[in-house]
Design a protein around this nucleic acid. Structure first.
Lengths: 104, 104
DNA sequence: CAGTATCCAAAATGATACTG
DNA sequence: CAGTATCATTTTGGATACTG
């Protein structure tokens, strides 16, 4: 399952759904570069893993909405935390890395 | 860079180095299923990203040791935390998921 | 021991067209 | 709108042989 989460697209879907539930096309629009095929496939995996839920409204045209389960929220939280931490520390790391000298 | 960390093997290398520094063959042994090619490649990426350091001792036979930088330690920590959390919650999630009913 | 180079197989991805 | 099917391409991974 970690594979699905850390997949090329899994991360972005989970982070994309972090703030609110989204329709299929909203996700596709949010996650730039993703194809419909990959989005569909990734979503199916995440739904199967109980990280994401799927709600279909049998209207015309049909509306399908995706959101995070409680489990998915936790995962997205960890993921987001790590992501933020990396962005913060990567910046200061590139400027100057005094810790490296302390290693030896 | 997130790609490198969440790579198929990047995760396991970072987690493998979490407790202590290791030699090349120790890592290869620890991470079952990894080939020398993939290990070498993954390590080069992580070193380039400043997540891992590399120490060469010019002995015969040569000894090369890898370990986490301060930056890498932080990343491995986040990764390990998420990993543990998933393992814990995935188990209870599969048995019973009352939160799901509360969604609708 | 610690790699690198090469070649090959397998899997992931993408573009496009199509369906209900 | 929300997908699925198909095909071509790209990427990844592994086995093996070779080097210092």
């Amino acid at each position: 399952m970690l594979d699905h989460i850390t997949n090329r697209w899994g991360i972005w879907v989970l982070l994309g759904l972090r703030h609110r539930e989204l329709r299929f096309f909203e996700l596709r629009d949010r996650i730039e570069g993703i194809s419909e095929k990959m989005l569909s496939q990734t979503l199916r995996q995440l739904v199967a893993d109980n990280l994401v839920w799927r709600r279909v409204e049998a209207t015309v045209p049909p509306q399908v909405t995706y959101g995070l389960t409680e489990f998915g929220k936790g995962a997205a939280d960890h993921l987001g935390g790590m992501f933020d931490w990396i962005r913060l520390n990567a910046a200061s790391m590139m400027e100057d890395c005094p810790e490296e000298a302390a290693e030896g």
